[in-house]
């Protein structure tokens, strides 16, 4: 036991935190996409696992062919957008259940990503290209690190502001209404099929963008980089809601704060991830651990309701 504790070096942990915070911010973009489908549209969208790699593959191949990384990152948004639209069309036009539609898109993206990359892994080095983000900026000088975090923070704040504005528009309101009560939305003349396709597109666009950032951050696009991404996204959403729920609900513009909380949730996820690894938890079990944590937090509202209704029956006697 003593040996175990003496083998843990707090300095190593502290040194690794900037990297995990950075990674959390990059994945925060994806978490926002997951939040939009899962919470606002009430749609469990597994396209995410495929579209994150699709965004990464598109971005890396464009950069390698000479496109400026900024534009390549921008294009990755559209790659994700298309993936989301395909899922949307499968479910609205062809009547395939939503979750199955998203699995079909996800699986087909595996082949498509292999075609895009020509092999299962494609590196993109910060030495050769002026990448938008990179782990090397974080681990490099204090100046590059500061620029990275400041830039990423400004980008996330702008993104959240844009989403806040969008979900306050007529179209954004229609999305929220469709997610809450599709029957009511149709009775108010909202084309719920179109809204679903649109929302899945926007959400996966963000996921694709996140994939592009992540590939540049880590220096490569990999065919397996999206595996389990949806679970990490859900973890970020749930961690954000659980930790900041009370704080957020009392604010003006609570919706914007909620999205901020989701990004924070992603950062916290990666910090905890780092902590657990540092405690020498076997890395091959990390996905299992994540899944258990997500299952636990998803079950809480249901179990709480069950308990309170059981109480209600008792006191009613």
């Amino acid at each position: 036991m003593l040996q175990y504790f003496s083998s843990l070096d707090p300095i190593t942990l502290l040194k690794s935190f900037p990297g995990s915070i950075a990674q959390g911010m990059v994945w925060g973009v994806m978490a926002l996409g997951v939040y939009i489908t899962f919470r606002l549209l009430d749609f469990a969208d597994l396209t995410v696992d495929g579209s994150i790699a699709f965004g990464a593959a598109t971005c890396v191949m464009l950069i390698r062919s000479g496109v400026h990384p900024v534009f390549a990152t921008f294009f990755a948004f559209f790659a994700g957008l298309i993936a989301g639209i395909v899922t949307g069309l499968l479910t609205t036009l062809l009547g395939i259940p939503g979750i199955l539609s998203s699995i079909l898109t996800q699986i087909s993206l595996y082949s498509i990503n292999l075609h895009v990359m020509g092999q299962s892994n494609r590196p993109v080095s910060v030495d050769n290209y002026p990448l938008v983000v990179s782990l090397r900026y974080v681990t490099g000088s204090a100046a590059t690190s500061l620029i990275f975090f400041a830039g990423m923070l400004i980008f996330l704040v702008m993104l959240i502001c844009a989403l806040y504005w969008f979900f306050g528009t007529e179209t954004g309101s229609a999305i929220r209404a469709t997610g809450c009560n599709a029957q009511m939305a149709r009775a108010q003349g909202i084309n719920t099929g179109y809204i679903k396709v649109l929302t899945l597109g926007i959400s996966n666009g963000l996921v694709g963008l996140s994939g592009a950032l992540y590939a540049q951050f880590g220096g490569a696009a990999d065919i397996n980089m999206g595996r389990g991404a949806i679970v990490i996204g859900l973890a970020a959403v749930i961690i954000g809601e659980v930790i900041f729920g009370k704080f957020v609900s009392k604010r003006r513009a609570a919706f914007a704060w909620t999205m901020g909380a989701v990004v924070f949730g992603s950062v916290i996820y990666y910090m905890v991830y780092q902590l657990v690894l540092w405690l020498k938890f076997p890395s091959e079990d990390m996905k299992l651990l994540t899944a258990v944590v997500v299952a636990f937090f998803l079950a809480i509202p249901y179990l709480r309701e069950k308990k309170s209704s059981a109480k209600g029956v008792k006191s009613g006697e």
């Binding site: 528009t169 007529e170 229609a174 108010q188 003349g189």
Partner: peptide
């Protein structure tokens, strides 16, 4: 939402 019944949903407020 009801006040826009039958209208186009755009990017207006």
């Amino acid at each position: 939402l009801a006040y826009r019944r039958g209208g186009k949903r755009t990017l207006r407020r």
